[in-house]
Amino acid sequence: MQREEKQLEVTLQAILNRVNDLKTAIQALIAKLENEYETINWPTFLDNYAILSGHLTGLSKILQAEMAPSLRALVVLPLQLGCERDEALSRLTEGRVPACTHDLVPDLLRTKPEPQAEQRLQQFNHKASTLSYDTAQKQVAQFTKVVNHVWEIISKGREDWDGESMRSQGMQPTHSTGDTHALVTAVGTGKGLRPGLAPLGVGGGALGPRGPPGPPPPPGPQAVAMPKAPSAIKTNIKAANQIHPYQR
């Protein structure tokens, strides 16, 4: 029995720590939204939301742990009800619950939503279940169209914003038009690949008003003259013609 009570105490303390961390993160996010709503950006909001998600995940792991006792088997009930102010309860709840009254206890121990909220939830579920397939598809298509339109507006606004921010910061462009034209000319005509080599045109002459065209190239393929190697076959044939085997 003492082991179970000790285990329950450790589990409740871990849950309480996680809940306090979650509460602190929620308070920080609310403070940012109320005080920094003009300067807060989307990445900062996502970072704070990721912190909340991490605390919720940790709390779920504690509740789903095998070593943790089943809290569903425990009963929570007030030991004393009264209208007088309870300082210990007020300090424990940070001033939100000053006294454990008869009107407050049903809300604190409620295991189901309020009757009004439960009734509206049932109405929404009934409306969703009676919706036809074609009507649902039309609504989904219309919603998708609206989302795509909003996405295009946001993307265009972001591109304009990035361009204006670069111009306002005086950032130099990362490309050069002159270098692009020089690269295209070098690929197309060979200009600038070798020093002192004029660019060639379609007919093989020089391009541009740099001077008179050069002499036309000789017909046929241009080959570089190479020294001929001595032929051993010719020498042997010549020697065979000079010395005939039937001449004495």
Rank of each mutant, 00 (worst) to 15 (best):
I243N: 13
S129I: 14
L92M: 11
T24N: 07
N125H: 14
H149N: 07
P199N: 00
K61P: 00
R248S: 14
A25I: 11
A198G: 02
A68R: 00
E66M: 02
T144F: 08
L8G: 09
G196W: 03
Q27T: 15
N48H: 08
L56E: 09
P199T: 14
A229M: 12
M226T: 15
E152P: 05
G163W: 09
I154W: 12
T57K: 06
S70G: 03
T111F: 05
L63Y: 04
V146H: 13
E84K: 01
L46V: 10
T24I: 08
Q247G: 14
R96S: 08
S90N: 03
N236H: 12
V187P: 02
D134T: 15
F143R: 06
K127M: 12
T24C: 05
L81D: 02
D134P: 02
R167Y: 05
V10T: 05
K6G: 07
G178S: 04
G58T: 03
S129H: 14
G192P: 06
A88S: 03
L59P: 03
F45R: 13
L131F: 11
Q2A: 08
A88T: 05
S132E: 11
T44V: 13
H175S: 01
E84M: 10
Y37G: 08
T39S: 01
G178V: 12
G163F: 09
P219M: 09
D107M: 04
Q123E: 12
G214V: 01
P227Q: 11
S155M: 11
A99K: 07
P78Q: 00
A31H: 10
P69N: 04
R96D: 01
V97W: 07
N17P: 01
L200K: 09
L79Y: 04
V184N: 04
P212K: 01
I15N: 00
G208P: 00
P245E: 12
L197Q: 12
E9D: 12
K234P: 00
A136C: 12
N125S: 13
L183W: 06
N236G: 06
A141F: 09
A223I: 06
D21L: 04
P195E: 09
P78N: 02
K127I: 15
P217M: 04
A31Q: 12
Q242I: 15
L121H: 14
A223N: 10
S168C: 09
T93L: 12
S165G: 06
V19Y: 11
I30R: 15
G190C: 06
P216F: 07
K6H: 09
S176V: 03
L59R: 01
Q116T: 08
P43H: 01
P115V: 05
E164W: 04
M1R: 05
K228Q: 15
G82L: 04
G208S: 11
R96F: 05
R3V: 04
T11G: 02
A186I: 08
S168E: 01
T174V: 02
N17L: 08
T101M: 05
A141S: 13
